[in-house]
Every structure is written in C-alpha cells, then in structure tokens.
Design a protein around this nucleic acid. Structure first.
Ligand SMILES: [Mn+2]
Ligand SMILES: [Mn+2]
Ligand SMILES: [Zn+2]
Ligand SMILES: [Zn+2]
Lengths: 141, 141
DNA sequence: CTCTTAATGAAAAGGTTTTTCAGTAAAGAT
DNA sequence: ATCTTTACTGAAAAACCTTTTCATTAAGAG
C-alpha cells in the first residue's frame, strides 16, 4: 500500500482499482497532467476506467493535498503530485516539466506591504512561475 | 473618443457600437466581470450585442493590455480594466471588488532565488491575492 | 461469506469558449 | 454624399471541459 493509499484509507475512503490506476499515473508525473491525459495513461492499467472517476479522484486527492491544481493559460487545469506544505509550481513552457518552490518569505513581505497600502486583509494567493527548464534552455539557446 | 477607443483605432481596429458598449462596461468595472455579465450590462446600451462579440472584444482588449484576465477558482475567467505596466490583482472574496498592486521587488528577488535553486529561467508568472476589502472586513468582523 | 453502502461508468446535462458563415456596417476613397 | 472594400457582427453549431444522475458493482467491515 503506497503512502497515498494510506492517506486515502485514513480519510475513510475505499482503495479501489480505478483509484489505484489514477494514483499510479499521478504519483510519478513530472509535468501537470490533464484529466484526459490521466485517463489515457491510467487505462493501460485499468481498462474500464471512466473520465468521471478521474475527476472524482482528482477532487479527492486535491482535498487531501496529495495533488496540486495548476492553472493553464488555455483555461484547463493540470494536476501535479504535491509535496507536503504550501508550495508553488514552476513550469517549463516548452516541455511542461514542473518543480515546486516555497515563496514564503518574499511573498509574506509583499503581502504585508500590499495590505498596508490597500487596507485589504489577504488570506490566500495564487502564484505560478513559467519559464524554461535547464534541459530546454540548452536546446533553445 | 475615449482613451481605449484611441488605442483600438491606433491598432487599426474599427470603432463599432458593440465594441463601445463592451468598453463602456469594462472601463468602470471595479470587480472582475464574466463575459456573460459584460453581455448583460452592455446590452442595455446596445441591444443586439452577442456573446461572441464580447469574447472577441475581450481578446482584443487583452492583447492591447487594456484589460487583465483573472483566474477564478471555479475555472471561469473574469476581466478587469488594467493600468499600464505589469500589475497584479487583489480581489475581495466577499464583494469581489479588486485593486491592482505592483509586486516587482519582492517578486524579482523570489524569482532570482528560484532560478538559482532550480536552474530554470523564469520569464513569466501568475500572481493573484485574495482576501477581504476594508468595507467587507467591517461588516464581517 | 454476507451485508451495507461507497464507488463506478455510461449517459445526459450544464457551462464556457471557439468556429463557421452569411449578412452588416465602418471608414477611407471618390 | 455615395461608393467600395473588407473588418466586424450575430446566430447557430460545434467543441470542449466538468458535473449530475442513476442503475450497477465491489470494497471492506462484521
Ligand atoms: Mn485558471
Ligand atoms: Mn503561497
Ligand atoms: Zn523544459
Ligand atoms: Zn469586499
């Protein structure tokens, strides 16, 4: 039983074959995957898997903070395995490989300045970085 | 002729009644508007306006950096009038009133640290803050 | 093994955004 | 003011993405 499956079980959820197939695909993903892409890859393991179950499993894994949802310019949402704690995603705009980073200090300072200037109280944020990974820099430069 | 209309004309675009209606709504917006909301408000000025033209005008205004697109948790995109330069949006999660802020210094420092740690070259980012505006803090606290 | 009910998949619905295309009107030329 | 060109428009349809519904299945406790 993987760590993710233990977390599911701990939350009172059943460990089913469809969920295992989705988890197997997501756990090793190094780029954000769309629900449709997850379906196609996971169906090689569990042929009967349906797209609805992919969406339901993604919602479940998101609630457990096992995956992170990233916003794409085209309006779709991709999903990545998430380390524990509050992290953000940096995504290669060429090969889409993603890494996580913590922006805690700089972001906290920024948020305090903005709060002081605007009078707003900030309690959440959305931060994603986009660029070229080392590999794609070589191929392009 | 408004400033926005001058920018459109300068880009070689025609100033039409549908576009004027969309612009009139967006120019004075203080919260992100959905295309459907823009349609409804703009139709009080130009009855025949269609949703397709709202989308087309939003793309046009985005390209000219006259409006900024904000990402909503529900997956839709709202649109706000945008000041010149690179700004970000801070949105009240209660009344949705939005203000802009510049995150230049803190964000630049953060990005340099992330570049050094990951080897990625960062060339774009997505940052939005969410919280309570002063008005809604009073009503809630 | 039996039982309960959470979970599943197919189909349908819901919602947003884009494409198509025939008709319209903006704006430069006459 | 009228003509001409063609960018622009709106209705309809298509293309997507995501959620809801509901009859069926199977996980896992007892
Ligand atoms: Mn988004
Ligand atoms: Mn953060
Ligand atoms: Zn790359
Ligand atoms: Zn507010």
């Amino acid at each position: 039983m993987t760590e993710w499956e233990q977390r599911l079980a701990g939350a009172g959820c059943r460990i089913t074959a469809p969920r295992r197939a989705v988890i197997a695909v997501l756990m090793n993903a190094d780029a954000p995957l769309l629900p449709q892409e997850i379906l196609e890859q996971a169906q090689t393991v569990h042929r009967k898997l349906g797209l609805v179950t992919v969406y339901r499993t993604l919602n479940l894994l998101s609630e457990l903070s096992l995956v992170r949802r990233v916003h794409r310019e085209d309006g779709c949402h991709g999903y990545l395995p998430a380390s524990a704690g509050h992290r953000h995603a940096l995504i290669c705009r060429n090969c889409h490989r993603a890494v996580e980073f913590t922006g805690h200090n700089d972001l906290h300072a920024l948020i305090e300045r903005v709060e002081a200037r605007t009078g707003y109280r900030v309690d959440d944020h959305l931060l994603q970085l986009l660029g070229l990974c080392p590999h794609c820099q070589e191929r392009e430069g």
